[in-house]
Simulated assay, not measured.
Amino acid sequence: MQQILITGAAGGIGRAAAKKFSALGYSLWLVDREGSALEELCRQLPHCRAFIVDLADRAQLSNLLSELESDPGELAVGLVNAGIASTLHVADSDPADLDLQLEVNLRSAIQINRALAKKMLTQKRGHIINTISAAALVPLPGSATYSATKFGLRGFTNALHAELQGSGVYVSGIYPSAVDTPMLRWEARNGGSPLNFVSTPKSADYIADLILKALRTRKLEYYSSRSDSWMGKLIGCVPGLLVRIYPFFARLGQRGMQRYRRQLELQGEH
C-alpha cells in the first residue's frame, strides 16, 4: 500500500486531498495542529495515522521528521500543504505574528521538503508536492509576510526540482488563488487582501483534483486557472505594474468579497 504524508490535513485543501488519496487506496500520515479535527478525520478514513504537530514548534517538527526518516515504509507522496496568513499591514503587525508565518509557511515547509527528498532519494522514487499560492507571483498588500513566504517557497520548490532532476523523485508546486476554505472565510471577515477575491473562489475539491493531476503528469507548476498564471507571470516581469493596476483590481476584489460574505451568510455562517 502506497503512503502519503499530508500537512495541514485538517483544513480545507488538506482534508479534501486526504479523502481523495484514501479513496485511491493510499495509507495516510496526516499532520495538523488541530488535534480534535485531525482525529475526527482519521476516524473516517482507513489506514490513517494522525500526528498532532504545531509546525511552528521546532522540537515538535524535529520529532515528526525523525519519525518520518526512520519509518521503514516507502513514502510515495509528500503533500506540504500547511499555511497561515495575517491581514495586517506590516507596520501594524506584531513581530511574533510575522515570525509565526515565516516558521509555518516557509521554514517548516523547507525542513519537511528536505526530509522527504532524503527519504525518497533512498527509495529512488517519490513525488513532493507543495501547496504554495498565487501570492507567490502576485504580492498581496495587507499580507506582505504571507506573500514573502510564498515567493520564497516557490523559489525553493523550483530549485529543489532542478536538484532532483533525473533521480526518480519529482517536485511540483500548486498555485491556487481564492479557495473556499476556513482560511479564506476568516480573511473575508477580517479584512483580507481584496486581491484574494477578484476571482470566484474554487472549491477545496477542485484544488485536490489539481494535486492528483500533478501526481499523474509530474509537471513543475499548476495554477487554478490560466488567467491566474498569465497575470502572475506578467506582474513578475513588471513588478511596478501592480501599483498601477491595484486600485482597479482592489475594487473588483471588494465586490467579490462582498458577494462571498453574502454567500457565507446564506449558508448560515456569520
Rank of each mutant, 00 (worst) to 15 (best):
Arg114Tyr: 12
Lys119His: 08
Leu41Ile: 04
Pro95Ser: 05
Leu55His: 02
Leu45Ala: 06
Asp54Tyr: 02
Gly35Pro: 02
Val104Phe: 07
Ile84His: 04
Ala91Tyr: 09
Pro46Ser: 06
Glu39Trp: 00
Leu64Tyr: 02
Val90Ile: 15
Asp97Phe: 02
Leu41Met: 01
Gln123Thr: 08
Glu74Tyr: 08
Leu88Val: 10
Ser70Pro: 02
Arg107Pro: 07
Asn113Leu: 11
Leu65Ala: 07
His47Leu: 12
Ala50His: 02
Gln101Ile: 10
Ser66Gln: 15
Leu98Gln: 13
Ala76Lys: 11
Leu55Thr: 01
Ala76Asp: 10
Leu121Ser: 10
Pro46Lys: 04
Cys48Tyr: 06
Leu79Asn: 03
Leu116Tyr: 03
Leu121Pro: 01
Val77Cys: 07
Leu30Met: 08
Gln60Asp: 09
Pro72Cys: 10
Met120Pro: 03
Ala76Ile: 01
Leu106Val: 08
Gln44Trp: 01
Cys48Ile: 03
Leu100Lys: 11
Gly83Ser: 09
Leu41Ala: 03
Glu34Trp: 05
Leu41Gly: 01
Leu116Ala: 14
Asn113Gly: 12
Ala56Cys: 12
Leu41Glu: 01
Glu74Pro: 00
Asn81Ala: 05
Arg43Phe: 09
Asp92Ala: 15
Asp99Cys: 10
Ser36Tyr: 08
Leu106Gln: 09
Pro95Gly: 10
Asp57Leu: 08
Ala76Glu: 09
Ser27Tyr: 04
Arg114Ser: 02
Trp29Gln: 07
Thr122Gly: 11
Ala115Phe: 07
Leu65Thr: 05
Gln111Tyr: 14
Leu55Ser: 02
Ser36His: 11
Ala85His: 01
Arg49Trp: 07
Asn105Leu: 07
Gln123Trp: 11
Ala85Phe: 00
Leu98Phe: 08
Cys42Phe: 05
Ile84Cys: 13
Arg114Ile: 12
Gln44Glu: 15
Ala37Met: 06
Asn81Gln: 02
Ala96Lys: 14
Ile112Met: 13
His89Trp: 11
Ala117Cys: 09
Asp92His: 11
Gln101Met: 14
Gln101Gly: 03
Leu68Pro: 04
Ile52Ser: 08
Asn113Phe: 12
Cys48Asn: 06
Asn113Arg: 05
Leu65Phe: 09
Lys118Met: 09
Ile110Ser: 12
Glu40Pro: 00
Gln123Phe: 12
Gln101His: 10
Asp32Asn: 07
Ala115Arg: 00
Gln111Ile: 01
Val90Lys: 03
Glu69Val: 09
Asp94His: 13
Glu103Gln: 15
Ile84Trp: 06
Leu88Lys: 14
Ala85Lys: 00
Gly78Lys: 00
Ile52Lys: 04
Ser62Val: 01
Leu45Asn: 03
Pro46Asp: 08
Ile52Thr: 13
Glu67Gln: 14
Val77Ile: 15
Leu30Lys: 03
Val90Asn: 06
Glu34His: 07
Val77Lys: 01
His47Asp: 14
Gln111Asn: 13
Ala85Trp: 00
Phe51His: 10
Asn105Glu: 09
Ser62Asp: 14
Gln44Arg: 08
Leu121Phe: 03
Leu98His: 03
Glu69Ile: 11
Leu102Ser: 09
Met120Arg: 02
Ala82Arg: 05
Leu79Arg: 03
Ser86Cys: 07
Ala50Asp: 00
Asp99Ile: 12
Ile84Tyr: 04
Leu61Ser: 02
Leu121Ala: 11
Glu40Thr: 14
Arg43Thr: 10
Gln60Asn: 04
Met120Lys: 05
Pro46Trp: 10
